[in-house]
Design a protein around this nucleic acid. Structure first.
Lengths: 244, 244
DNA sequence: TATCCTATGGCACTAAGAGTCATTTTGCGA
DNA sequence: TCGCAAAATGACTCTTAGTGCCATAGGATA
């Protein structure tokens, strides 16, 4: 078998023992009780009533026994971004992808809180989590690069910078919301909070301009007397916006 | 000795053999020639004419033999942020910190290019690098949280979100500039490029608003006939901005 | 010369992770 | 209900990263 790691395989009927689940909960229990480094893969396997080798068939590394199934989630995110069926904005699509990731935690708040407690004190787990967010960020940035090309004279490298920064900002907002939610004990509507945060990010990034940018926050006041033709208004607005 | 790893210790007189340098270059050579996983710490040590144990005295992990001295750089960044002597803006201080990190690569462009070649194909090294950027990002965000508190009615949680996003955006911009520079072969003035990129980030983040923000990019057009009192103008602008 | 102190070498040990093959379990069609 | 193919598991072995511990070499200092 080529890729034996758990990504939805190992399908178990209801009622039968779910090795994956037993391994993760045994791992979290032992880690919380005896410490992370102090717990060996042997002990986890034994606690789950399974052989050591089996443990490493379900998880490619010790850390993965605690962390959520990012591999599978990343695959779903990629699929979502490649489908790209609706006519929504790139940012909106990435927002949906963010919710997909958030659901990975939100669907089991109690476990999320326990995991967080663990990650708070184990450096190695924090590192792994950071790595994963880096993966998402990269996928986001690449998606933007693919679909958010702009017509006109905009500099290509500047566009890529904007894509990288946007992806980083979105992931940071996601992580912020997730962390706050978990610290609050896992109550309330996380998804609504994520939407609010991403709205702020989108608003800020909408102000991203190339080198010939107009100043943010500038007020454009057009004074016209009644009876002025509308095209005249449009003309002066345009020229004012262009010559800042 | 408590912390034996290289952070400026192992001071060598000029002319004596610099074990650290020999180990890193031996490591890069062997990794590029035979692959990363295929090269053991034993072989690196032997190539540097040193014992295996010595290798792990200089580097806490195999990956660290290739990567730049992030540990020391992080310490310098922390020191810079804690000094906080000048009266510049938080963003400007973080910009200086970014330049500090950039210098870690810019001071030896040839080695940076070789390293990049290596990281391009070794997942484990990419992971380590992502981890390190995560560390910087965290330090940046914490700095903002410390010094960029705002007076008035601004929501605290919203502030922290802004700090997280700002830090992420800055680090993303830094990494973007660094990557582009390395891909271009390591020529030109990286530091100038970083300044340009961070200027764009600052401009975008300046547009960050709390929940009662007016829409970014929205144009407010006031039409008034000549002779209208100024207070009347102000009144309608205010009411229009408030009801968006 | 006696003595420190630091870098190094050498050795043993733990544990993570991968390869391999035999064995069991499970799903499914006849 | 039986039997078969595929998947899951168990039981080894092996390599290598990383650590702890102690001995030693060799330069600096009193």
């Amino acid at each position: 078998m080529g890729v034996p790691y758990f990504t939805g395989r190992h399908t178990q009927m209801a009622g039968l023992r779910n090795t994956h689940e037993e391994l993760t909960s045994a791992a979290i229990d032992l880690f919380l009780a005896n410490g992370y480094e102090e717990t060996t893969a042997d002990e986890i396997a034994e606690a789950a009533g399974v052989a050591r080798r089996t443990f490493f068939r379900y998880f490619r590394a010790k850390e993965d026994a605690v962390l959520p199934d990012h591999e599978g989630c990343l695959a779903r995110v990629r699929e979502l971004l490649e489908r790209n069926d609706s006519g929504e904005s790139p940012f909106a699509t990435l927002t949906r992808a963010s919710h997909l990731v958030l659901a990975l935690y939100a669907q089991d708040p109690a476990k999320a809180v326990r995991r967080y407690e663990l990650m708070r004190r184990v450096e190695s787990l924090r590192e792994r989590e950071i790595m994963m967010t880096g993966r998402y960020q990269r996928v986001f940035a690449e998606y933007l690069y693919r679909v958010d090309t702009r017509i006109g004279d905009s500099d290509e490298d500047d566009d890529r910078l904007r894509h990288d920064v946007t992806a980083a900002a979105m992931v940071a907002a996601h992580n912020h919301v997730l962390r706050q939610w978990i610290r609050d004990g896992g109550g309330g509507d996380v998804h609504a909070r994520l939407d609010a945060a991403l709205d702020l990010v989108e608003a800020a990034m909408r102000g991203w301009q190339g080198e010939n940018a107009t100043d943010q926050g500038e007020l454009l006041v057009v004074v016209a007397r009644p009876g002025t033709p509308v095209w005249r208004l449009a003309q002066s607005i345009q020229s004012a916006a262009g010559s800042s």
